[in-house]
Design a protein around this nucleic acid. Structure first.
Lengths: 167, 167
DNA sequence: GAAGATTGAGCGCTCAATCTTC
DNA sequence: GAAGATTGAGCGCTCAATCTTC
């Protein structure tokens, strides 16, 4: 079995602090490291479309919501993991690129409706195909059975951390 | 089996783009989400010690390296996942708090040696106990056997992504 | 010229304060 | 007053340019 960087860290801790059970780092450290490595590699693929990761995230959220590809700013905040200030900024930039429109909700003028433009929909529909295929390649070290196991264990972890489905 | 937020996303994709295999999101999305949720919860614990997560990371890297708790800036770059500019900045702040010292390496004056001060060592030795215990609590949704499985699958993923042990 | 660290510009985030609408 | 979004200050990062030492 090959060792990863976290195995090295755990060996150092065992040597230096044998009195402490540092085994939780074997999961928390690996989740953190995997997230950063994956994010970095995914950006390589987004670069081919002139997209930032956060741009794809917003476009994909609107796309998978289905017709009319429209959500309020608040719904985008809820389904992202960033604050409302960050969403305001993201919408500014995507609207500037002509990928979404921003309109006041006539039914509740405090609320803002964000809608995918035809250009935004075309882009996200194209990128999502390449994106998921690219992700599948990043997971190629895992067998189909291992992928199912891993997804299931991560779900258990997430639910334990309070994550829940909204749909 | 409880559903998490990623199950909701996958259900939307299956509905909107049944032609695309979006299953890789079941792993990539969960890894990313778990990393963010864990990071957020860990900060709650660091707050009790007036520490930022990045501060603990640097102190812990020096501590687990063993006596004399000293690494070059370059070694800190290599064992972190940030750039050299970020490490320069982190050292500035930790030195300002008296938790590390920064000295030019007499043997190679291009290199900078970062050493844990007694105060830095005392702090990290205290925090690591609470930190790992807190992490164990965050993983409590998983049985001991599930934790081993999860750590092993994440290792396989990491090695597949090019991560490797340096010690 | 290369190795190693630092600097400064630019980016996207968080947080608290603010504005508008209910 | 609460709900919903925006604003602006501050933070820590990346990246490319730079400086010192080899």
């Amino acid at each position: 079995m090959n060792r990863d960087a976290v195995d090295g860290m755990l060996a150092q801790w065992r040597d230096q602090r044998p009195d402490v059970d540092t085994s939780p780092i074997g999961i928390v450290g690996r989740v953190s490291r995997a997230a950063r490595l994956l994010e970095r590699k995914l950006q390589d693929n987004y670069d081919r479309y002139g997209l930032q990761g956060w741009e794809f995230d917003v476009l994909a959220t609107l796309r998978r919501a289905g017709k009319p590809y429209r959500l309020t700013a608040g719904q985008l905040v809820a389904s992202s993991m960033v604050t409302s200030g960050a969403i305001t900024n993201r919408i500014d930039r995507l609207a500037g690129r002509g990928l979404v429109t921003r309109e006041v909700d006539p039914g509740n003028r405090r609320s803002v409706l964000i809608t995918l433009t035809p250009a935004g929909r075309k882009l996200v529909d194209e990128v999502v195909v390449a994106h998921t295929a690219y992700e599948a390649g990043l997971l190629s070290a895992l067998s189909p059975r291992q992928r199912d196991q891993l997804a299931g264990l991560l779900r258990t972890l997430l639910v334990g951390l309070g994550d829940q489905a909204t749909h």
